[in-house]
Amino acid sequence: MKRVKNLMAIIASLVLSIPFVASAQDGGTYIDSLNVQDSSYMQPLTTTTEQSSSNSTTMIIIAAIVVVAVIAFVVLRKKKK
């Protein structure tokens, strides 16, 4: 019974210490690696480039409409004359 209690105590202390282990490195370990990357091959972007495909589809339609509208304007203007 005592052994079980000791085991439980060890497990509990391990679990309770997780937040401290996972928390920040006050001891200055942020400066262990000072390297500066030239490209983000190792760091997938999560903000600026992530867009939904439906957004792309909308843009395709808008771009096509803009360019076709210019062409249609030219054609119609020519026809009128």
Partner: peptide
Amino acid sequence: RVMEHYKVSIRQVFEGEWLWSTQ
């Protein structure tokens, strides 16, 4: 979809500034 929004950003010199390609 991947090609249109390529996930790799590369540092570029543009107009005398140093920017990531996604910027």
